[in-house]
Amino acid sequence: TYVQALFDFDPQEDGELGFRRGDFIHVMDNSDPNWWKGACHGQTGMFPRNYVTPVN
């Protein structure tokens, strides 16, 4: 499953995934309602669910 970033996200903690608005992120785990795990630009980490939108 892929999502697209609605906003820039700069990691604040180790293990978070940084990205820029418009980036596509491969979702690896969406079991938590607020923080998902994904991959983008060769990196993996957690990111806030409300920063992304589903891609059809």
Rank of each mutant, 00 (worst) to 15 (best):
T1A: 06
T1V: 05
T1D: 06
T1M: 14
T1K: 15
T1G: 08
T1Y: 15
Y2N: 10
Y2P: 04
Y2R: 07
Y2L: 09
Y2F: 15
Y2H: 07
Y2W: 08
V3N: 04
V3H: 07
V3M: 08
V3E: 02
V3G: 04
V3K: 03
Q4R: 09
Q4S: 07
Q4H: 05
Q4T: 11
Q4F: 05
Q4C: 05
A5P: 01
A5T: 01
A5S: 04
A5D: 02
A5V: 00
A5F: 02
L6G: 05
L6S: 07
L6D: 10
L6A: 11
L6P: 00
L6I: 13
L6Q: 11
L6E: 11
F7K: 15
F7I: 15
F9T: 05
F9G: 03
F9S: 07
F9K: 06
F9N: 05
F9A: 06
F9V: 06
F9L: 08
F9M: 07
F9H: 15
D10W: 10
D10C: 08
D10R: 11
D10L: 05
D10S: 10
D10N: 15
D10F: 08
P11F: 02
P11M: 03
P11C: 05
P11D: 04
P11K: 11
P11G: 14
P11E: 06
P11Y: 02
Q12M: 15
Q12I: 08
Q12S: 13
E13L: 11
E13W: 07
E13I: 06
E13V: 10
D14Y: 05
D14T: 06
D14H: 09
D14F: 08
D14N: 06
D14R: 10
D14K: 08
D14C: 14
D14G: 09
G15V: 09
G15C: 09
G15K: 12
G15P: 03
G15W: 12
G15N: 11
G15A: 08
G15E: 09
E16I: 06
E16Q: 14
E16H: 15
E16C: 15
E16T: 10
E16N: 07
E16W: 11
L17I: 09
G18M: 12
G18V: 07
G18D: 11
G18W: 13
G18P: 13
F19W: 00
F19R: 02
F19L: 06
F19H: 01
F19T: 01
F19S: 00
F19Q: 01
F19A: 04
F19M: 04
R20H: 13
R20S: 11
R20T: 10
R21P: 02
R21Q: 15
R21F: 07
R21D: 04
G22Y: 05
G22F: 04
G22Q: 05
G22N: 06
G22K: 04
G22W: 05
G22M: 04
D23Y: 03
D23L: 00
D23A: 05
D23G: 01
D23I: 00
F24I: 13
F24L: 14
F24S: 08
F24M: 13
I25F: 02
I25G: 01
I25V: 07
I25S: 02
H26T: 14
V27K: 01
V27R: 00
V27H: 02
V27W: 01
V27T: 01
M28G: 03
M28T: 14
D29S: 06
D29L: 02
D29Q: 10
D29H: 04
N30T: 15
N30S: 14
N30L: 07
N30K: 14
N30W: 10
S31K: 07
S31L: 06
D32N: 13
D32F: 04
D32G: 11
D32S: 08
D32A: 07
P33G: 13
P33D: 15
N34H: 14
N34Y: 09
N34D: 14
N34W: 10
N34V: 15
N34Q: 12
W35G: 02
W35F: 13
W36S: 03
W36V: 09
W36Q: 03
K37N: 05
K37A: 07
K37V: 09
K37R: 12
G38L: 00
G38P: 00
G38Y: 00
A39L: 11
A39F: 11
A39D: 12
C40D: 01
C40T: 07
C40I: 09
C40V: 12
C40K: 05
C40P: 01
H41V: 03
H41Q: 11
H41I: 02
G42L: 04
G42H: 04
Q43Y: 07
Q43W: 06
Q43L: 12
Q43D: 07
T44Q: 09
T44F: 08
T44R: 06
T44E: 14
T44H: 07
G45W: 00
G45F: 03
G45A: 01
G45Q: 02
G45L: 03
M46D: 05
M46E: 06
M46F: 10
M46T: 13
M46V: 14
F47D: 02
F47Y: 01
F47V: 03
F47C: 00
F47T: 00
F47M: 01
F47W: 00
P48A: 04
R49S: 13
R49D: 00
R49Q: 11
N50K: 14
N50H: 14
N50F: 08
N50W: 07
N50E: 13
Y51C: 10
Y51S: 10
Y51R: 12
Y51M: 14
V52K: 00
V52Q: 00
V52F: 01
T53Y: 08
T53G: 13
T53P: 01
T53V: 09
T53Q: 15
T53S: 13
T53W: 05
T53L: 12
P54E: 08
P54Y: 13
P54Q: 15
P54R: 11
V55N: 03
V55I: 09
V55K: 12
V55L: 09
V55W: 09
N56P: 06
N56R: 15
N56L: 08
N56D: 15
N56Y: 06
N56A: 13
